[in-house]
């Protein structure tokens, strides 16, 4: 479903991603681990269109996407979250959820003025869905709080909520549980699995926490110094000598 071929990216002298190739299939959860500075976030930024690759090709659903803008990639059903969750300072949690809804009639300024009944209908529909999702994620009591005032963990949960509204085919999650307390981590993981069962989409997760990865992922890629060091099931990865040296050995 997502196919990455020979992606390279440098910042000045530093080669952040050095010829990465990998493939992610439909309807499953995949992991990407690696030490700090191994190029994980850079790779995510390239896939999601936030950075331009220097070399290589990326295909999603058979279509080449490495020259598209971030919003065009999202339109094709591939979306992402951020390592440090973005939370609009002066928008409420509920507005955040509504923001994420796809193809709203009132996003076009002319429609917003002229097609009021249609705008109203789509608003009601999205509002209902947003409120249900917030209840499921245990964020409902915060619906009128400015998202800028949430805790780090709540912001990550909200990021997941926005993804639910967006209903993508595939999600890139950048450290969804880093710095989050165990209860919230549990909420986030539970939410993720719920969503996957409902919509049969796939997840590609960058994680630091090997525990989280082995609990939820079917297959894990290990990135080191911008290159794929190993790939396989979590058990295989945990027994791989190269991986133990490069990554796990340090923890």
């Amino acid at each position: 479903m997502l196919k990455i071929e020979n992606i390279e990216k440098s910042f000045g002298q530093l080669k952040a991603v050095n010829g990465v190739s990998l493939e992610i299939e439909k309807d499953d959860i995949f992991g990407l681990i690696g030490p700090n500075g191994s190029g994980k976030s850079t790779l995510f930024n390239i896939i999601s269109g936030f950075y331009r690759k220097d070399k290589g090709e990326i295909y999603f659903d058979g279509e080449r996407i490495d020259d598209l803008l971030p919003n065009q990639i999202v339109e094709r059903g591939l979306c992402r979250t951020f390592q440090v969750s973005r939370a609009p300072e002066r928008m409420t949690v509920l507005e955040n959820m509504l923001l994420a809804a796809k193809n709203q009639v009132g996003e076009n300024p002319l429609n917003a003025l002229l097609k009021r009944p249609m705008v109203e209908r789509s608003r009601k529909k999205n509002l209902k869905k947003a409120k249900e999702l917030l209840s499921e994620l245990d964020l409902f009591h915060l619906k009128d709080e400015y998202s800028g005032n949430l805790s780090g963990g709540q912001k990550k949960l909200l990021a997941l909520g926005r993804i639910f509204m967006l209903e993508p085919k595939m999600v890139l999650l950048d450290e969804p549980t880093a710095g989050v307390n165990p209860t919230l981590t549990n909420n986030i993981l539970k939410g993720m699995q719920n969503l996957r069962e409902k919509t049969e989409n796939s997840f590609f997760i960058v994680e630091h926490d090997m525990g989280v990865i082995s609990d939820v992922c079917r297959k894990v890629f290990v990135l080191n110094s911008g290159e794929i060091l190993a790939e396989g099931s979590p058990e295989e990865i945990q027994q791989n000598d190269k991986v133990l040296d490069a990554y796990l050995g340090r923890n």
Partner: peptide, 28 residues
């Protein structure tokens, strides 16, 4: 009417978190 609509919400999202808007598919 405009600022209360989804269009207005997109504006505020660009103001507060442009990256996020892009990641939610908005053509900023």
């Amino acid at each position: 009417m405009l600022t209360d609509s989804p269009f207005g919400r997109n504006l505020k999202a660009i103001r507060d978190a442009e990256d996020l808007s892009k990641s939610l598919g908005k053509n900023t």
